[in-house]
Amino acid sequence: MAATLAQLKPGQSARVTDVRGDPVLQQRILEMGILPGTDIRLVRVAPLGDPMEFAVLGYNISLRKSEAECVCVETA
């Protein structure tokens, strides 16, 4: 099974390989610049374990864990 954004450790960077899941969610994620080939870093996880904050394309975005699981990544 490929790694997803939800499995990153805080501070860890990765490159997006695929975006899956519900088409509407997929489109939203893609629109925000999280698409195959983009570098993304997990900044921190909320105190209750969800959602997670990522840095991508020079800004920060928070995704719920369930959303982060839709984004497949490869780590260097």
Binding site: L25, P51, Y59, S62
Partner: peptide, 13 residues
């Protein structure tokens, strides 16, 4: 109900 309600929130500086 919508198919999904993406949360996807920008964290502005």
């Amino acid at each position: 109900r919508s198919r999904v309600t993406p949360f996807l929130m920008e964290m502005p500086s």
